[in-house]
Design a protein around this nucleic acid. Structure first.
Lengths: 219, 219, 219, 219
DNA sequence: CATGAATGAGATTTCATTCAT
DNA sequence: TATGAATGAAATCTCATTCAT
């Protein structure tokens, strides 16, 4: 007894009801899950079709081929984080508070979107070969470096931050402290023998990252 | 016999070494390269055979199957970093110097062995499923956490380090600051539009990591 | 994609039926022939694909793997003989006539379906390992034992059959007298130096089996 | 602590001590086990080497190739049963007693040497292709047909056996009643749900076979 | 005589992609 | 637009047999 056996009056549950937008979105969601959990080479087109409840042919219709689908997933994932970053409002927070908010935001994003980390890992394994094909790479640039520059400048002026900090290096470091922990939580958990994924562990890590960044920056 | 009757094997140029140790080592070296550059799913057994100049059959003879080979590569790679770490002699360096040496060592290792990063990425993509199969996981534990504990304690006593630092968090952070940069250098280079792999960039990163760690720790 | 990019499939002459039922049946028929003539280990998936005129990939699509195909062949072959047995109508034949009909039927089946014997031989070589995996083993039980019980009881009551005959032993013996002759006709023919497969030889054997069973049973 | 660790004074346990006869015999024994349990196609040369404790190369030295080894196993197995049959002494037993002894002997042989059945099954699967290659096929003819002729003649003259019995058909039937039961004991046990291999079951089968043959023959 | 590493052909299985309906 | 059967190339893995030592 699946959706197929219902009466025609009731709209069918799955996609497949000739709604191009929903079909496309369903494929994209399934593909994001598949690519991020298995990587580009491990992902299976059949599985994406199955997960999305969409006919395999539609994948080729909408995305050309497996690579085209992956590219779309990759771009959408970058777009999502960049969009979230753009929505980050530090307003007129004092430098330290602003920095704390920025660090918390980055950590929060990675905790909420671990699948993005897997896409990054896959993409780096392929030496960014696919990312380079995207036409709008420039737009993938993070607004956080700009925000960091501004915060650092204000903090230095107010004598609460040290001088001479490169905002790009700091941006990478803030990402590193969170991304690496989440990216590598499976191997780290295995070797340490305790689960780095537990809420308490995640909270501790967040505190630590804030502490390390602010500790480093203090004048 | 039957459909399986074979023609006499023609003598070949390649390394028909009849030296099991070298054959095994050649396979392992080629496999490390292939798995780290393509991942578990992207790696090709044929390519490993070609690279190592060894008959494909030998791979199955020595390692059982592709997964067995990957497992051996993984274990050997972990063993290599752990061995290097064990050889790290901080001697009686003052806390700050010791910390600097430890951070430099970690950064140096990752710069010298980027293939290890790719194996880590692959393994985490697979949720450490293979790592968990290794019988000696416990021995894969890093001695650096112990060294860090000792350094931190000494530094606190000498009032050059802050108190309350968790050595495991710090260990992860030191790794993160280096590993993430190298792991993600391809996507970061693409997006920033400049090559993070250049010697100058690597040197700058090393300095930054030392600065951030020591800056954070200062009392 | 990658190393796996394929050329467009060229339309083919063979049965690109797009008729799942017929494709499945074609595979099954070819597989029955191949497994029964070569055994499980000697059978070749390529040959089954060739014989059935079906793309090899379809075999895996419909049957999972070689073993799954073999299992299906085995089950279908058992089902076929059991179906034939169920259609055997002894009606109200007098015991001796009924017994004759049953023996003739069994002999007739084995002469008409020697491939079933080979499957049995293969399966016994494997110590019934595959048969044990079938979910409906119970339904493979022969109705002939029940018919034999009934015939024996009537024959005893009418004083035309001896008493004390175990219907299961008799069932096995009736099968044995026919199955063994057909199963082993190649070695027996070779050693005796004459062809046990000739129509005349088969007829003689049928008569002999009837004679031996009825001769044994006579009161 | 294996044979290898003993003092040189004591002869080594395994073969491999430059005793051609023992090496050959060890291979043959292992090969008989392997071929009879796996069939010709399922048997593995490596496994035979392993089982016999002999270097693989020796197999090729003594037997040419896998097929040559199989042929030798086959011939030896036929020779063994023929030798046993030749040693059967019915002496001047009265016809009924002689027949009982012959039937018991045949049943006893098959119970004691089930591996022979598997070789027969394998050979028939291959349509006796290998058996036909043996140079001394004629000598593989069973002496039992002759003994049966003599017994039947005496029994008819003494009016204890029926007339018109073809000794070859009877020979095949006596073999059939035992061989089929043992050959097919795995599938039959599976379907009947009880073990036909148990001592009690074997004893019952022996009694049944005697009963059916003597019952049929009685005048 | 003895060893066991090495070989190459071929077996099973997988997968992105296409096509008839 | 939608379906899912069909395709062929290539992947992993196996095995009888040979050869250097």
């Amino acid at each position: 007894m699946d959706a197929r056996t219902r009466k025609p009056a009731v709209p069918k549950a799955g996609p497949a009801l000739r709604d191009p937008g929903r079909t496309r979105a369903a494929i994209l969601a399934a593909a994001t899950g598949e690519f991020s959990s298995k990587g580009l080479d491990g992902a299976r087109v059949d599985e994406i079709a199955r997960r999305s409840g969409v006919n395999k042919r539609m994948i080729y219709h909408y995305f050309g081929d497996k690579e085209g689908l992956y590219l779309t997933v990759l771009e959408a994932s970058y777009a999502a984080i960049r969009t979230a970053e753009h929505e980050l409002r530090l307003g007129d927070l004092p430098p330290i508070e602003g920095m704390r908010a920025l660090v918390r935001f980055t950590w929060g994003y990675v905790v909420a979107h671990p699948e993005f980390l897997n896409l990054l890992a896959t993409e780096n394994l392929h030496r960014a070969a696919n990312l380079k094909k995207l036409p709008h790479i420039r737009e993938l640039h993070s607004p956080l470096t700009g925000m960091l520059s501004e915060l650092l400048a204000r903090g230095v002026k107010q004598k609460v931050f040290r001088t001479g900090v490169d905002p790009v290096q700091l941006y990478i470091s803030i990402a590193a402290l969170g991304f690496f922990y989440m990216s590598n939580r499976h191997t780290l958990s295995t070797i340490f023998g305790h689960d780095l994924d537990m809420p308490r562990a995640l909270a501790d890590r967040g505190d630590h990252i804030v502490e390390i960044v602010l500790g480093y920056l203090r004048a």
